[in-house]
Design a protein around this nucleic acid. Structure first.
Lengths: 159, 159
DNA sequence: GAGTATTTGATACAAAGTATCATTAACCAG
DNA sequence: CTGGTTAATGATACTTTGTATCAAATACTC
């Protein structure tokens, strides 16, 4: 059977949860039901979600989630590097390649909401070098580039 | 008399307000008391302010400012390019060099809150090229680098 | 399987940002 | 410099986003 239909089983979900377990174990942190649920939910959403959108998706499964608990889980997953926050849209997204510690950039389509995570050497080098030149010891880099993706420019010519 | 005391008259404030007037005139937009007040206040603050901090500073002078009106003025000033929003701290700052249309980067000291506005060619080129490579027509670039500035690293050794 | 420290649940609240519509004031014309 | 027009503001209420606190629950170690 050809893979013409959208996969029902989110690809990589299992792998990501395994990775989460290993990360927790390695760092002596607890892997709780909620943390697993938050990551799964973000992964299966396949896009960035606001904390409250995430909350709505968790509620059916786990009626006792609250804003505070969702934010706590998100903070935790961010320290592990398996979730990122998009500052310019106040939303959260599962990391696409959490294997390596990394500085990433995001490209966000303002039409369809698609988010692409990139790991560009030139940008990494240029930002680091700017920091040094200005005397900053950088520990966080937000690079979020918004525009219109190829697909959206092609299809909806002018709208 | 030596200039040992902090200037009471914010340097460049007049110039900035003149520039604002010219920009409005050139674009057929109205220059209102509130818009002037918001820009002055940001300029004399000399640092990034949240919309509500700004509101508090406006109140003594103009008791009828509201959150909505402040946000409206900020949005307006941003379209003119004389004010920028810092996404990662949810705050606003007067632009340091609004002469040229520009893509800027910000370096933010997490210790003292200092914000430096930069206009780095390499970063501009690298982000543009990344956008092209991934098929994005970029129209907004958020580059916010957080760390500890030279002064703060020097003084408070470890705290 | 029990002990313990960490997380969570529940509640309440703080901060950030927006919608609507009647009123006001900036700018232009004369 | 006076009035007319249109854009901006004021007032009000509300939505969204994020946090504080503390008792109850649960993940992990032994």
């Amino acid at each position: 059977m050809a893979k013409t239909h959208k996969a029902i089983h989110t690809p990589g979900l299992e792998g990501a949860l395994d990775r989460l377990e290993h990360l927790c174990r390695a760092r002596g942190q607890r892997l709780t039901r909620q943390r697993r649920a938050v990551l799964s939910s973000l992964l299966s959403a396949g896009r960035a979600l606001s904390a409250y959108e995430l909350l709505e998706r968790l509620r059916p499964e786990d009626g006792k989630s609250t804003p505070a608990s969702v934010y706590r889980s998100l903070d935790f997953l961010m320290t592990l590097g398996v979730v990122h926050r998009l500052e310019s849209t106040r939303s959260f997204i599962a990391c696409e390649h959490p294997e390596t510690p990394h500085w990433v950039q995001f490209l966000i389509c303002r039409r369809c909401g698609q988010v692409v995570e990139a790991e560009d050497e030139r940008i990494a080098a240029a930002t680091e070098s700017l920091g040094q030149r200005l005397g900053f010891a950088l520990d966080q880099r937000v690079v979020e580039l918004t525009g219109v993706c190829e697909g959206c420019r092609g299809s909806a010519a002018r709208h």
